[in-house]
Design a protein around this nucleic acid. Structure first.
Lengths: 205, 205
DNA sequence: AATAAAATGTGAAAACTGTAACAATAAAAT
DNA sequence: ATTTTATTGTTACAGTTTTCACATTTTATT
């Protein structure tokens, strides 16, 4: 229904709307959202229009209505269980995140090869990868955060997919090879920094 | 010279090339890179062509030559100093990263309002934000990683910009408002997870 | 030497994305 | 009640990005 580019924008709108709501506002206008998100007002109206969201001419858009529609689109209505694999620096930080609940996500388990990590020091139970299938089946998990070291990322991702994972948020600096039905989102700090540097023109001067 | 879309692809090529090189390969072909990066072979050739990188007809591309050109484009030749602001969960994890050196980046300092964080437990000195200007001037820093809590992100970013930062890698779930000459790259785990879920169609079934 | 095969490089077409202009409508002002 | 104003919604257009088709070059084969 909506493609990747639009999805990204809708998520921006949602963030802005949540902020507006927190400020006590009830309705908003394409221009206000434009200022907040740096997306042109026309494009915002077009996106809404295409999603079947209607405003009132001269009256703007109802914030709760918009958030409701976005909720439908992104399926926040249904709780989604997720897992995390790898409790190194990044993994440990991510497992302690508390924002998951806000998006109706539920971190149900963590996995690490190091038995020393399998303690109660984390907010979720920590297992060996041997228990992966069991956890996935029990909690109907389809999305995993992958935060293992570079050298084991490809193999681990294969194992995840083998056991039913269809979406991977990958923090390892590796281009994972996965079957067509699996989706990977890469988060790579180095690459983001590099691009930032390139674009602010640090390079030239 | 190259735009954002192309930059992202070039970074992908670079990752693939580094992998090929590690495997001992000397030359490669647009098709091999295509398989590795999921970018079409024609597009890869076009990107290279536009960057003034030439291959040999039937002979493919020389890996070292390609990496050299990419190095020039991304300015890895010159060392870039960066700082990190906020030593919470994520910040602490990022400051311990060791991959910065690979891209010729140098993490020179961290900042946190909590004096308890200002110990020697971190691989770089930790300061109060009062010392920001001093550090920025001394080390000629133009890029910062922002990993403070949501509520203080906007204010902190304003302060960073005021003191000369021109690029921000923002881990706070906030759409920062910054002047035109400043670039922000957002890294938002929730948003990435949501998009992943949306696109694998977890929602529908 | 001639031919075939495997690559690159590129101009034109297609697909996609965003913008501009403006009609339609609702609210506010007179 | 009428006019003005502000805002949405949409159609046509412009720009950007990707793909297609194929010419060109190099290497390998016969």
């Amino acid at each position: 229904m909506v493609n990747l580019v639009q999805t990204k924008r809708l998520q921006k709108y949602r963030m802005a709307l949540l902020r507006f709501k927190k400020m006590g506002l009830k309705k908003t206008f394409s221009h206000s959202l434009s200022e907040e998100t740096s997306v042109s007002a026309v494009l915002i109206r077009k996106d809404f229009s295409q999603c079947g969201i209607r405003g009132k001419r001269r009256g703007g858009y109802d914030i709760d209505l918009l958030l409701g529609e976005l909720k439908k689109i992104f399926g926040h209505e249904k709780e989604q269980n997720i897992i995390i694999v790898g409790l190194g620096n990044i993994g440990s930080a991510l497992v302690k995140y508390e924002d998951y609940r806000q998006s109706n996500m539920n971190m149900v388990a963590a996995f690490d090869i190091d038995p020393a990590k399998r303690t109660r020091r984390y907010p979720v139970p920590v297992y060996s990868l041997e228990n992966l299938r069991e956890v996935i089946d029990t909690f109907d998990v389809s999305v995993a955060i992958l935060a293992v070291p570079e050298f084991s990322a490809q193999e681990t991702s294969r194992y995840l997919v083998e056991n039913g994972i269809r979406g991977i948020l990958n923090f390892a600096p590796v281009l994972l090879k996965v079957p067509d039905h699996v989706l990977v989102n890469n988060v790579n700090v180095m690459i983001e920094l590099e691009r930032l540097m390139y674009h602010i023109g640090v390079i030239q001067d």
